[in-house]
Computed example of a mutant assay.
Amino acid sequence: MKLSILDQSPVLEGASSKQALEETIKLAKLAEGKGYHRYWIAEHHGMPQLASPSPDILLAIIGSQTSTIRIGAGAVLLPNYRAFPVAERYHMLASMFPGRVDLGIGRAPGGSAEASIALAGDFLSKVNDMPTLIDELLHFLYDDFPEDHLYAKIDISPRTIEPPHPWLLGTSEKSAVLAAEKNLAYVFGHFMTDSDGPKIIRKYQDLTENKKPIIVAVSVICGETEEEALQIAKEASTWNQKATSIEVDNQNNDMFSNMIIGNPVQVKEQLQTLQQLYQCDEFMILTITSNYQDRKKSYERIANIFL
């Protein structure tokens, strides 16, 4: 089973945005050294608690300071953009870091309604155009527009022999169906939803002609002991409430309902159980703690279990 990391570049208590970005780069280097398969950066806008509105810029730095780990966006929020500049930027990354670049695609707003309007104007209409945007992006990535198409005359430069590998990210049956229709590999955001993930994944597999790899993104906190892990999770809940403006009832553990929290043995057992449910090829792990040292140690413990 492959393990990867999803990083939202959180600005934790007492830290600056600059420190958050520096910690992301440090964690990516640690991930490569520990044997994680890929390192993805999330995209968010107008959110002071999250420091990366432009994953491609950060990926260029991470790629230059690593050598083997796959790097990518998790995800480019496609309704915010035209397909052409996205293809250009990720072809450029793939030219710099051959065989290492992923292009995750999502359709969430990634910020407030006001931020979405500032980015894309009528965001909802762009969401409805998502299938067309994906088609355009794939044609740009693979240089295979029909000869009579206006965009067939466009040459992307730099263009690579091995283009960035596209994935579709989602949390619903609708996204799974879209991924299958577009013949895209699929990432399911287990940590973001209470939906029946295994059922959604089975739907995707039933609709996909050729077997595609499946990633499940899950929130994990691994402590030296169960008590330590629970304490770290409770401390992190304060930051999460500020970041999401959602009140959380710690007494009822609402925030922890679909998280994996425990000591290394417990985390291993829970991930193995989840893998059996999903029949997935890979877990992409998101860890949010109240400080960067706890985050680093959690990822180290998880790597020591599996890698």
Rank of each mutant, 00 (worst) to 15 (best):
H165D: 14
V177S: 08
P158Y: 04
H165F: 13
K199M: 09
F191I: 04
F191R: 03
H190R: 14
L184S: 08
R159M: 11
F191M: 02
S195W: 15
T193G: 06
A176P: 09
P166M: 10
E162L: 09
I156N: 04
A180N: 03
A180W: 10
K174T: 10
R159I: 13
K203P: 06
S175T: 07
I161A: 14
T193F: 10
K199H: 10
L184A: 01
K174C: 05
W167Y: 03
S175R: 01
E162D: 10
D194C: 14
V187I: 11
L184G: 04
T193D: 09
P166C: 04
L207A: 09
K182V: 00
I201P: 02
G189S: 06
D194S: 15
F191P: 09
L169Y: 00
Y204S: 02
R159L: 13
Q205F: 11
E173N: 15
K203W: 03
L168M: 01
S172W: 09
I201G: 01
P163F: 02
A179G: 03
V187S: 11
E162T: 12
T171E: 05
E173Q: 14
F191Y: 06
T193Q: 07
V177C: 11
P198F: 08
K203V: 07
P164Q: 00
N183Q: 13
S157D: 01
V177K: 08
P164V: 01
M192K: 15
S195Y: 15
I161E: 15
I161N: 14
A179W: 01
D194Q: 14
T160F: 01
V177W: 11
A176H: 07
Q205Y: 08
